[in-house]
Design a protein around this nucleic acid. Structure first.
Length: 200
DNA sequence: CAGTGGATCGTCT
DNA sequence: GACGATCCACTGG
């Protein structure tokens, strides 16, 4: 059978972070913790449009130790700690110096038969739901140590899905960004139509 | 069901 | 020293 192909960095270097957020839906994310491989199909994302987006950590061109990762080139991983408990996983997009990112908010399980065959022996299934950014990181084992890593080099990889079922992708406003004023109303959130996120 | 509040710590002021 | 791109337990109806 045909095997999934790694997403090229050029996918993440593009200008349109909203399009990237939408197109990430249905792709496969895989995490290698050295002992096992854990994977899921990306089911929910949000776009954060950097300097012009009040909901972004980099709004107004804000540069701190934490946000420095956002200014790396597309394809880097931005992880930060929320409420002291949850590790939130983002993929940086656009050219270096432009702090765009996509927050991965939800995944659904994917069987090892859909992954490259060499993952089979170390494949580890995860249980329960990963329908929230904190839960997703918990299931996949994402922590602050992944912050600043480049996708597809070793620890975290993203593959084009080879799944036949192309489900409809719908959009809505983002979650938990009430402080962002008018920008909170932007339709920057995407999810599989038949996937049930925690909040609507 | 909906609504509320506590957990817990890195980051920034 | 305050707070958060969240989650879960617990309340009350």
């Amino acid at each position: 059978m045909t095997e999934p192909v790694l997403v090229d960095q050029s996918f993440f270097l593009r200008d349109d972070v909203v399009a990237i957020a939408r197109e990430l839906i249905g792709k496969i994310i895989l995490v290698d913790d050295q002992k096992t491989f854990k994977a899921g199909i990306i089911a929910e994302t949000e776009a954060y449009a950097g300097e012009t987006d009040r909901a972004s950590h980099a709004y107004g061109g804000r540069r701190t130790n934490r946000t420095e990762t956002l200014y790396l080139s597309g394809g880097h991983v931005y992880v930060y700690l929320c409420y002291g408990i949850h590790h939130l996983l983002n993929i940086v997009t656009n050219q270096a110096g432009i702090p765009h990112a996509v927050l991965i908010r939800g995944i659904v399980p994917v069987g090892k038969e859909h992954l490259p065959s060499y993952f089979a022996t170390r494949f580890a299934k995860w249980e329960g739901l990963a329908n929230g950014p904190g839960k997703l990181s918990s299931k996949l084992g994402i922590t602050l140590k992944h912050n600043g890593m480049m996708l597809n080099e070793n620890m975290i990889q993203i593959y084009n899905s080879i799944l036949k079922t192309s489900q409809e992708v719908v959009s809505s406003t983002r979650v938990g960004v009430d402080y962002a004023g008018e920008d909170a109303k932007l339709p920057y959130r995407f999810y599989l139509k038949h996937y049930k996120p925690t909040k609507w």
